[in-house]
Design a protein around this nucleic acid. Structure first.
Length: 197
DNA sequence: GAAATGATCGTCT
DNA sequence: GACGATCATTTCA
């Protein structure tokens, strides 16, 4: 299953159940990233480094990285070992462990916001860098595929990917379940800060 | 409402 | 030394 390229695996993850630390999520939005040299927006584009080593390992593992000085994001490693494509888990609906998730996300105004957005998702599930490389088939963090793949899903440009030739529209590899209140939706990339004169 | 901004640090240049 | 696969909060209309 995870031997395929991330772009093919991603739509099949929609509706899957991800369980970690007492909370279970139904995935509603994911995003695919290509392998080394293939996709400028991918961490793997410039080859293997310290951070992305897990991407180059066997598929079916969790790749967790730290960003913006405070957030964790979780991916499922795909492709044959060495290809390093991966699927970013962007959003999901909490279907079990609601109380736990609410406790971890006090700022959420409603349950749909508990795991809407990649960093919120990891927070709701209490996933951190310590979980990088975890095997999703066995162990405390589990991913159960839907009995039947989602029939109706939407595709679009990726969010948050910027740079010359690396804009999100170059690879329309974002997949989501239409009509789900837990989908984070498209948000234009806002520059960190305009240089002061 | 929308938009700007601070938080905060590992990784790569 | 810059900046990011982001979020929460504040500011402005």
């Amino acid at each position: 299953m995870f031997e395929a390229h991330a772009r093919d695996v991603a739509p099949r993850l929609l509706g899957a159940r991800l369980t970690a630390n007492g909370v279970t999520l139904r995935l509603t939005e994911v995003e695919a990233y290509g392998g080394s040299g293939e996709d400028p927006g991918s961490h793997a584009f410039r080859g293997r480094g310290r951070r992305n080593a897990t991407m180059f390992g066997p598929p079916g593992r969790l790749y967790v990285y730290f960003t913006y000085g405070m957030h964790w994001c979780a991916n499922v490693v795909c492709g044959p070992e060495g290809e390093a494509s991966a699927v970013l888990l962007r959003a999901g609906e909490v279907v079990d462990g609601l109380a736990e998730a609410r406790g971890r996300r006090p700022s959420a105004r409603n349950d749909a916001e508990l795991a809407r957005g990649p960093a919120r998702l990891t927070r709701a599930l209490a996933i951190t860098g310590a979980d990088d490389g975890a095997d999703l088939g066995a162990g405390p963090i589990r991913l159960e595929l839907p009995e039947r793949p989602a029939i109706a899903f939407a595709t679009g440009p990726r969010t948050g990917v910027s740079g010359p030739g690396g804009d999100g529209a170059a690879f329309p590899w974002r997949f989501w379940l239409p009509g789900e209140p837990t989908v984070s939706g498209y948000r234009p990339h806002t520059p960190r800060r305009r240089p002061a004169y």
